Amino acid sequence: MPKILVVDDLRDSADSLALLFDALGHQTMTSYDGQQAVEAAQSFEPDIVFLDINMPILDGYGAARSLRQVMVDTPPVLVALTAVSGPDAKRRADDAGFDFYVTKPADFNVLITIVDDLSRRMENRPH
Rank of each mutant, 00 (worst) to 15 (best):
L24H: 12
P75L: 04
D22K: 13
P87K: 14
L19E: 11
Q35P: 04
T74C: 06
V49F: 10
S31I: 11
D94N: 09
G60A: 09
F44M: 14
D94T: 12
D94M: 12
F50H: 06
K90V: 11
D15R: 14
T74K: 14
P56F: 01
P105F: 07
P126W: 04
D8F: 01
V70K: 13
V49Q: 01
R120A: 12
Y61G: 06
V38T: 08
L20T: 07
E39K: 08
I57D: 02
D59N: 14
M1H: 09
R11M: 04
I114G: 10
Q69D: 15
G97V: 09
D116W: 01
V70T: 15
D116I: 04
V84S: 15
Y101P: 06
P46K: 06
L51V: 10
Q69G: 03
K3N: 00
S43C: 11
A93T: 08
A41H: 04
L67I: 11
M29K: 14
R92I: 01
L81M: 06
N109T: 07
K104I: 07
P56W: 05
I57G: 00
D9F: 02
D95A: 15
A18Q: 03
A80C: 08
A83G: 15
T82V: 10
S66E: 15
R125N: 11
N124P: 00
L10E: 13
I4F: 01
S43W: 09
L118G: 04
A41F: 08
T82A: 01
S66R: 12
Q27V: 14
F108D: 03
N54S: 13
S13V: 02
Q27T: 13
D107W: 02
